[in-house]
Amino acid sequence: MARFIHIPMLVACMFAPFRPVFAQHISKDSLYIYVQSDTLRVDATIASLFSKRAIDAIESGMTTSIVVQFRLRTGRGDQVGQRGLTTRLEHDIWEGEYRLIRQAAQADTLITPRFEDIRRGCSRLQGLDLAGLPLPNVPLTLQMRIDVNPISPEQQERTRRWLKILEKGSYLEFFYSLDSPPSSEWVDVIKFRPSALPHLLEK
């Protein structure tokens, strides 16, 4: 029988003062860290994933990239695991249709006319693997970083062109723009000791 431990947690998303104020966090009741099949996994629900700016962009029909990353660090700052989840959200505003594409080994797509379905689909993380066992039996800190970036078609094209040119190592096209916003910062989610985690049996 599966047994979970409920770990209370609090995330304070602190962004630099000049950045828009986001309230992305994982609610107390929704975070579960457990071991399953020699893998440390997490279930979580991110609250307030989309800022007003992001919603404006999505409602304008811009494609949006959503990257959620977790990492585990020891008290000395050594990194013992990092995992991320990348999702692309497209919105055809003429047809009124959202398309959420999860870019993973097993990609899946959600198509819906309701933004609430999209919000749920992006916010709920189930069984995301954080690291393989064994882990050092020292207090670990789980950190999270979330980037929700609207990308216009022109930016996508520029990015594609850049990637191609960088691959070729050309310096003639070194026309670099520092307009893109910096990535968000890592924030602490919770501290725990691996030996105290529950083990979830496979069905």
Binding site: R53, A57, S60, G61, W94, P150, S152, Q155, D179
Partner: peptide
């Protein structure tokens, strides 16, 4: 920094709403 212009259906047939998204410098 970013300009995106799109169009969505209006409240009546044959009408449309122009949607402009900007991200300011």
């Amino acid at each position: 920094r970013t300009v995106f212009v799109n169009v969505k259906p209006g409240t009546q047939k044959g009408k449309a709403i122009l949607v402009v998204y900007v991200r300011e410098k």
